[in-house]
């Protein structure tokens, strides 16, 4: 549902990732976070007036 909200207000839903990782899977956790961090870096900063501080 949150992804749907992002889509409707014009924020790329790719900027959100939801995954279930067990606490016994540190390697997988590291992989997923790294992959998502790379993706967001590629997408670049979200264009708002003064960055992404709380409104």
């Amino acid at each position: 549902m949150f992804r749907s909200l992002l889509k409707q207000v014009g924020i790329n839903p790719e900027r959100m990732y939801l995954g279930w990782i067990s606490s016994s899977e540190p390697a997988r956790f590291s992989e997923v976070v790294q992959a998502f961090a790379d993706k967001v870096r590629e997408l670049g900063p979200l264009e708002t007036k003064q960055g992404t501080q709380n409104g």
């Binding site: 549902m1 949150f2 909200l5 207000v9 979200l46 708002t48 007036k49 003064q50 960055g51 992404t52 501080q53 709380n54 409104g55």
Partner: peptide, 25 residues
């Protein structure tokens, strides 16, 4: 104030509206 700063105008990022919209679902 963790989510929405009170006392400031025109939020640069629409946190207020996104939270409110999500809560209407």
């Amino acid at each position: 104030s963790l989510w929405v700063h009170t006392g400031t105008m025109t939020p640069p990022f629409p946190t207020y509206h996104l939270i409110r919209a999500y809560h209407t679902v």
